[in-house]
């Protein structure tokens, strides 16, 4: 029954059901994930083999050598875990310890029960200020952008996240109400958006395509339908698309 739905993707990760991978940091992550999964599967098998062999062998014998039976395997598995941890930590450090480069493209993502809004800062590369008092979905200002602020004039708010391929992106995550979880499985990204706090996430999308953006932090009854579309497009298409979006000034 499971095999019937083998994914169409032809990547080696198909066995594990992983969706395709479209981010620059993705292959390393996938590689490490698959390594972990295979090791876990191998240890699971090995442990059960030992279990069953021990049960099946008829000749009774006492285990005696505590060093050989307990501490030596323990040392081996510990080494294994340490190696995995070191690798994971270095990947994590590469992804999260440092901020984005100065040239990264700024995009702001705001989670609201139960929708995502994306804001592009426009030529001034600065987001206009927002005030919760001004929030009004009816007046087409779901983020409460202050029209009096000169920076807001060229801001563009969209409900679809369009990203240029092969450009570093600096996402600013915010939430208006409760904790939401931004997750783009195909870009191997996940980060919670917390009200009262801004969180930065930087990455580079590589493969053009249309991907899913989901909310992965329980945020209320509409949690399951709080999703959006991510489109990774070549730079030229991106510029064209952006230009076609209305700015705050022209709403």
């Amino acid at each position: 029954m499971i095999l019937a739905s083998a994914p169409t993707a032809t990547s080696p990760s198909a066995f594990w059901y992983l969706p395709i991978d479209a981010a620059a940091h993705g292959p390393a992550l996938d590689h490490h994930l698959l390594l972990n999964l295979w090791i876990a599967l191998a240890l699971l098998t090995l442990a059960h083999l030992i279990l069953f062999t021990g049960l099946i062998l008829r000749l009774r014998s006492e285990p005696t050598h505590i060093g050989r039976i307990e501490y030596l395997p323990l040392a081996i598995i510990t080494t294994l875990f340490i190696a995995l941890a070191v690798r994971a930590e270095s990947l994590w450090a590469a992804n999260r310890y440092t901020g984005p480069s100065r040239t990264a493209l700024q995009i702001e993502v705001t989670g609201v029960q139960f929708a995502w809004y994306f804001r592009y800062p426009g030529p001034d590369a600065t987001f206009g200020v927002t005030r919760p008092q001004l929030v009004s979905a009816a007046e087409a200002n779901p983020l409460g952008i202050d029209p009096a602020d000169p920076h807001s004039i060229d801001d563009r708010v969209t409900s679809k996240l369009v990203l240029p391929a092969n450009r570093e992106i600096d996402l600013t995550l915010r939430s208006q109400d409760v904790i939401h979880g931004l997750s783009i499985p195909e870009l191997r990204l996940k980060q919670n958006a917390i009200p009262g706090q801004t969180v930065h996430l930087h990455f580079t999308a590589t493969t053009p395509g249309t991907y899913a953006l989901l909310c992965t932090q329980l945020c209320g009854l509409g949690h399951f339908r709080m999703n959006a579309t991510v489109q990774v497009v070549p730079w030229g298409d991106y510029i064209g698309w952006l230009a076609s979006q209305p700015t705050e000034a022209h709403q």
């Binding site: 490490h32 994930l33 972990n36 240890l43 994590w92 979880g181 996940k190 980060q191």
Partner: peptide, 23 residues
Amino acid sequence: FIAGGLTGPILAQPILDQYLNNT
């Protein structure tokens, strides 16, 4: 315990949890 425990250290690596969290 082995089957469930072995996925513990996987989740405990933040870079992997960045994919697996809340799934």
